[in-house]
Amino acid sequence: DGVAVLPAPQNLSMQSTNMKHVLTWSPVIVPEEIIRYSVEYQGEYESLYTSHIWIPSSWCSPTQRPECDITEDITATVSYSLRVRATLGSLTSAWSTLKHRFNQNSTILTPPGMEITMDGFHLLIKLEDLGPHFEFFVFYWRREPGAKEHVKVVRPGVLPVYLETVEPGAAYCVKARTFVKAIGRHSAFSRTECVKVQGEALPL
């Protein structure tokens, strides 16, 4: 390693939301100089079996920004070690290692954004696309005592998706949550949205 005359990056921290993982740190300041950073990681396998081996991150070896999107590097549900160092020309800082190992199963899962609309007597839903990890479970029911709750797995897409053919004069409610197969976790439910169908209720 180069002589460590540069200060090592400090305050390493992980932010992970909806399976997008970003490592941040405090920038190393050397007036009128451009500092570059290199990020490396080690999965649990490497720590246990080849502890001398660290893998350069896909997007930040090197980078000039004091942050790194490591989403594509964290690809198994094990704990990962992460480290960063600064470089200025041939000068290299010591490595700084993230204090706590990171596991993607700790990511924050937010309730999905959704939009409920009608087309004639078709109840439709449009969901925000959160990426390939996500499945969307949509729960919907007719707002009346004892109504049965239906569940449907919906794929987000460009167009709204059909949920149900509804009856005139009735009201229907919808809520949704995400599921991430890789970590086996659900998000919380979205807010429940209800819509009233136009027209006269059908005679019994």
């Binding site: 999965g43 396998y45 490497e46 350069p56 198994a76 094990v78």
Partner: peptide, 17 residues
Amino acid sequence: DHHIFRKVSRLANSLLT
């Protein structure tokens, strides 16, 4: 290369689980 290295790491860590 590093690309293959990352993919192999993913497999190793997945089999480890």
